[in-house]
Nucleic acid binder design. Structure first.
Lengths: 233, 233
DNA sequence: GCATTTTTATGTTATTCGACACAAAATTAC
DNA sequence: GTAATTTTGTGTCGAATAACATAAAAATGC
């Protein structure tokens, strides 16, 4: 558990997407207030209802952002890889969190006080632009996602989730194994279906030689077929 | 069709949400480039695939923003009332439009060049904040919407749409008639269901004395019941 | 190592909702 | 005003998928 401390230089580098936009003084100010946090699997970064005070940057590991639905089922809204920031939306909207974020595996995150970010935005248009773009992109994906989750059938939604995981986390050296091992439940919650249906549909894909399953390990055998299912159901 | 020209003062007032954040010079610069546009019913403001050059402010009338889905069915993403701005997301995301916007009734909009907005943001943190907040709020709603549209049943989704229209456009003087007359198809596209199901479910609500229907006119009789259906299906 | 819990797997049933068909009513075009 | 088109209203049917039940397998805790 004893994690080597990250040097200030390393932090600055990890946060380059932000630090490179700052003046030396601003950078100094920001780095001064950053804290490192280690997460074990299933530890929460924040929870639904929390007041947002910090944003976080995933330095290593994998984080899921999820939202409790009315039906008890929860929906995975995002899955984060290094290096991604999260937790700022609620603050900017002047709202509490309406999602929760939890580690899918042991992860390291940087805690960045949002009031510092806000202060810097005040005088740094580049940083403002960074967040405007970030939010605008995410809003576009969210709309895309809504339409896909409501209109595609189970097979299409699951294929999309698999391809999304491939694009987000990549493949292992063999060039076909997804570099993330999710539970069937998480797969289901990404794809808006019941766990049973995720299990069943994954089995079906395996039977059709589109993927191969070994526990939580998923090998993509026929990506063309996956793309086709994603597109046409 | 001959619409009275809006005076510069009136434009400034209509756009107060933005103009009040600007210096006199910035205001001058912005107002100089604004154009007024009249829309007939069903006229498009912009279309899926268009390059974003302007944003628009709805001055009067009602606009729907919709997204073509894979299944051919389209999804109403937002419905806009005066005074609302739209069309900036794609620009900020450095993307083309992935939605279309069309007038639900004769409307007047202001056309605001986005490059001017971008120039002003460069030196005006307040304006930057305005857009950061706007996008952050909308991203929150979009996530909420995704979960509701995927998890609620038809009755819950339609009840939500009705309540949403009430909250957006308000009620007429009688205190119970929705101030917007949508086609059944638009209602369906808001609620992610087929037109048949929208018709059927509206009829059911009427039969249960929750609403009263007179053509496209919808009277809300039992709002408590509507809220309950919205919440618990 | 064994008991407990969680996860995965599979079968069965019930429900929701879309697809389609058709007619009536309303709107629009000429 | 009449024909053509669009919108609304209903009924029937079938497909998609959630719900539930149960068992095997795997992971976890002690």
């Amino acid at each position: 558990m004893a994690k080597k401390e990250l040097s200030l230089e390393l932090i600055e580098e990890k946060l380059s997407m932000i630090t490179e936009l700052l003046t030396p003084e601003e950078k100094q100010k920001l780095l001064m207030h950053i804290k490192i946090q280690n997460l074990r699997k299933n530890d929460f970064v924040y929870r639904d209802g929390d007041q947002p005070r910090d944003m976080w940057c995933v330095v290593s590991g994998k984080i899921k952002v999820l939202k409790e639905g009315v039906s008890g089922r929860s929906q995975l809204i995002r899955v984060l890889k290094p290096i991604t920031i999260t937790g700022h939306r609620a603050f900017f909207a002047n709202d509490v969190h309406h999602t929760s974020a939890a580690a899918l595996e042991p992860s390291v995150i940087l805690r960045i006080p949002l009031n510092i970010i806000a202060e810097i935005i005040q005088q740094n248009a580049k940083l403002a632009w960074f967040f405007i773009k970030d939010l605008a992109v995410r809003l576009g994906s969210a709309n895309e996602r809504t339409v896909n989750l409501t209109q595609k059938h189970v097979r299409g939604r699951l294929a999309e989730a698999i391809l999304f995981l491939r694009d987000t986390y990549g493949l292992e050296e063999d060039g076909c194994t997804l570099s993330i091992y999710l539970s069937r439940e998480d797969m289901a919650n990404m794809s808006n279906m019941t766990t049973s249906n995720a299990i069943r549909t994954l089995s079906a894909f395996a039977q059709e030689k589109i993927i191969a399953i070994d526990g939580r390990k998923i090998k993509l055998i026929d990506m063309v077929a996956l793309e086709k299912i994603n597109k046409f159901g």
